[in-house]
């Protein structure tokens, strides 16, 4: 992380002798700004989580969204996981995310490795072919016609294939591959290892960090897919979670729940809405936390190329 780089240049948590002491006013302003920035992210998240776990009474008392929790009532979650639109959409999004990320990583890693050695036949033209996508814009209308023309309408592949290869991610992985000492690969080649074997046995084990970051980028992209679903998916049973989130929370449609026994009292609508928001955020937040330490490296690596 850049933080570590910065701290190498400057001893952690100590002020250089030549730097003047900050004024109290300056410190106060700085603290205020940074606190405000952090709260701007945390307060909405906190409010949504607390409201999703609140009982009808707590919500009525607060007059809407709840900021101070009073007891925990998980009935909203029981409801949305009992079957019906939200459960279905979570399955769809999980399948699209898992399959999509796998397909994307395989395609991108193979192409990045194939393009990682200048001097191979056609290297420059191939690289140009990939990089030219940055300048040429496919256009919404022809893209729509191609995807529907391939018969992908109402198929989950329409959410995967059009975004399967991100050249930006390819450039990131390629840069990482090129930083691996070539002598290592050459000696394997002399020993008669095939390129695929070199890739899987030597290159990939050395590239776990960048694969994790690019995997996160792809997975988040697939989990967040909304517009392609608006274009290509008309079948309600195949809506991903973002479409459902939009229809329930932004358009105010009521979700259907199939698995609840007859006569069960429904949890408050607001709590259900907020629970849908939480299940849409939670996977991202969890994966983000686990990969975060590699993140800055991946993000800046990409910025240096392309």
């Amino acid at each position: 992380m850049s933080v570590q780089l910065a701290t190498k240049l400057r001893k952690p948590s100590s002020r250089p002798v030549w730097e003047e002491k900050p004024t109290p006013v300056g410190l106060a302003i700085k603290g205020f700004i940074l606190t405000a920035v952090v709260l701007a992210v945390l307060v909405p998240l906190w409010t949504v989580v607390v409201t999703s776990l609140s009982s009808r009474q707590t919500i009525n008392e607060a007059g809407g969204l709840v900021m101070i929790p009073k007891g925990i009532d998980a009935s909203a979650y029981v409801t949305i996981f009992s079957g019906g639109t939200v459960t279905k959409a979570l399955w769809v999004s999980t399948i699209v995310t898992v399959v999509g990320t796998a397909v994307s990583l395989v395609l991108t890693v193979l192409a990045a490795y194939g393009l990682s050695r200048p001097g191979t036949v056609g290297h420059r033209s191939l690289l140009f072919y990939f990089l030219l996508t940055f300048l040429i814009y496919p256009g919404l209308v022809p893209s729509y016609l191609v995807v529907t023309g391939l018969g992908l309408k109402d198929s989950l592949w329409s959410l995967i294939l059009p975004t399967a290869v991100s050249v930006f991610n390819l450039v990131v992985i390629r840069a990482f591959f090129q930083a691996i000492p070539q002598e290592l690969l050459d000696s394997a080649r002399i020993d008669g290892a095939s390129e695929l074997r070199i890739l899987t046995r030597i290159v990939l084990p050395l590239s776990k960090a960048v694969i994790a970051v690019v995997g996160l980028f792809y997975a988040v992209g697939y989990w967040n897919t909304w517009f392609n679903a608006l274009l290509y998916i008309d079948d309600n049973d195949k809506f991903p979670i973002q479409r459902i989130l939009q229809s329930i929370v932004l358009q105010g449609q009521s979700p259907t729940f199939s698995g609840l026994p007859v006569g069960t009292s429904m949890p408050p609508t607001l709590a259900v809405k907020m629970a849908v928001v939480v299940v849409a955020v939670a996977p991202i937040a969890i994966v983000y936390r686990s990969i975060q330490r590699h993140l800055v490296k991946g993000a800046t690596l990409g910025a240096t190329k392309g």
């Binding site: 193979l110 192409a111 191939l126 072919y129 040429i136 209308v141 191609v146 390819l170």
Partner: peptide, 28 residues
Amino acid sequence: DWPLLLMTLPGAIVLLVFHYLPALGNVV
């Protein structure tokens, strides 16, 4: 070098179908 070329092929095809073909399709 053919194994390396082969490796770039699937990605190149995806871009051909979902990027360059629509780019040409702009003629509509």
